[in-house]
């Protein structure tokens, strides 16, 4: 038994209408809802990953700045230390130089003083000799005894003059 090619039946129409609604509900609840939820989840995960990456990048940048600061400070520290060391060395070398100079000066002075003393001694000895010689010479020449004291004063003054001349020259 078959239907006619065209036959209208209200209940059949209603059944097919309900079938379409059923398919609509199935697609909505099963396919679209699940896929949309999955897509939303994926989007959220993606957003989270991006946020994490941004965070990591910001951290890295912060770290970089900190490191740069540290390196800067290290550089300045090194500079400071170098400068200090330089200054120290300069001071020390100055001090050593000064000390050496002083010592040399002292030695020079001593040597000078010694030389002076020596010369004085020599002068005195020469004086004495000269006085002796001249006294004897004059005794012989004059034949008489000269009062040593008088002559000594005379000759002393004479030798002094010579000595001064010597001093001025030497």
């Amino acid at each position: 038994m078959t239907l006619e090619v065209i036959s209208v039946n209200i209940w059949q129409i209603l059944i097919s209408l309900i079938n379409l609604l059923l398919i609509f509900l199935i697609l909505k609840k099963v396919l679209f809802k699940r896929v949309k939820k999955m897509l939303a989840d994926r989007q959220a995960a993606l957003d989270k990953q991006y946020a994490d990456a941004d965070e990591a990048k910001r951290n890295a940048l912060e770290n970089q700045v900190a490191w740069e600061e540290k390196i800067q400070s290290a550089h300045s520290e090194a500079d400071r230390i170098m400068k200090e060391a330089n200054v120290n060395a300069m001071q020390r070398s100055d001090a050593i130089l000064a000390e050496t100079k002083e010592r040399a000066d002292a030695m020079m002075r001593q040597a000078e003083a010694e030389a002076k003393l020596e010369r004085k001694k020599a002068t005195a000895a020469m004086q004495h000799e000269i006085v002796e010689v001249s006294t004897q010479l004059s005794e012989k020449m004059l034949g008489r005894e000269i009062r040593t004291e008088d002559h000594r004063a005379l000759i002393d003054s004479f030798i002094d003059e010579i000595g001064e001349d010597n001093d001025a020259n030497g």
């Binding site: 239907l3 065209i6 036959s7 209208v8 039946n9 059949q12 129409i13 209603l14 059944i15 097919s16 209408l17 309900i18 079938n19 379409l20 609604l21």
Partner: peptide, 15 residues
């Protein structure tokens, strides 16, 4: 094919 039945398609068209 159900679509060659006028009732089926009419139901969808009415919806």
């Amino acid at each position: 094919p159900p679509t060659s039945d006028i009732n089926v398609v009419a139901g969808w068209a009415i919806l």
